[in-house]
Design a protein around this nucleic acid. Structure first.
Lengths: 142, 142
DNA sequence: GCGAGATAGTACGATCATAGGACTATATTC
DNA sequence: GAATATAGTCCTATGATCGTACTATCTCGC
């Protein structure tokens, strides 16, 4: 009798496979210099710019780490820092035009992966899995 | 209308939360020197020892990376290297007595997390989510 | 208004994680 | 037995990660 595989490990496999796919698609589209950690940071950006601490929080990293990643992204021309009009301490990290070109590629691949998973499970089970995962957010992402 | 959250991101949240919990439990039990990457490597070990390339494959890292992690784990006294009787090129990475003490702690916390999730979703939905995740392995973990 | 405490960003420095390239020893295949 | 594949290793370079600590700014209670 085989030990039960923890749900979290199953999630790791899915997450990691999807991330690999997105990174590969980005490389294909000319964004081969993006690293995994940079990608995770970018995934947390919203239109109009995002504060460093928010990015760090979303990517589950310390703000010093986020700072280093943003520095690299700035150097690569993907994001820029602008003043936050609402808070003199803060600055907003915002996508440049080049950075904005990443989004459609990443989202298309994200969507493709989701569609493949849905094709494998069938629409009903896929929907159920997704709602279950979403419901777990209250436990997992407080 | 909010953009749909990709399933893979939902999985990341779950995986990461569980990993944090396990790491915290291990630290509590006196294994505070274990890092995230070391933990992921240890999670891939089976009784009787495991080859480096297998560990690398399971943790989704290059064998050079696995080598470095095993070196640290050896130095920390958690694993040892023994000859592989079936292959002169290979060596088996095996848990020491101290390393074996990690397992019950990690598994108990793993289980606790799974139980909490089940309590939140209810047994039926938890079961459905798990089987869906398991079915995705053929797509995601070829 | 003002002072105490919280928060945003940053800097420094140490350590770990990660992998490309290349090499050796052993196995496998034909 | 020769050609090829595989397991482990070394060297090296780069990236990721965070503890500690500091400054500037904001917020809240008085």
């Amino acid at each position: 009798m085989q030990r039960e595989i923890p749900s979290s490990l199953l999630m790791f496999l899915g997450y990691r496979a999807a991330e690999d796919r997105i990174l590969a698609a980005l490389a294909q589209a000319g964004f081969g210099d993006l690293t995994r950690a940079q990608g995770r940071l970018l995934a947390g950006m919203d239109d109009g710019g995002t504060r460093l601490v928010v990015l760090a929080d979303r990517a589950r990293i310390a703000k010093q780490t986020a700072l280093a990643l943003v520095d690299r992204l700035v150097a690569a021309g993907y994001v820029e820092r602008v003043r936050d009009p609402e808070d003199g301490r803060a600055r907003l990290v915002r996508l440049t035009d080049r950075g904005r070109d990443i989004l459609p590629v990443a989202r298309a691949e994200e969507r493709l992966v989701d569609d493949e998973w849905a094709a494998h499970l069938g629409p009903r089970r896929m929907r159920e899995m997704r709602t279950a995962l979403q419901d777990l957010r209250t436990v997992v992402d407080p």
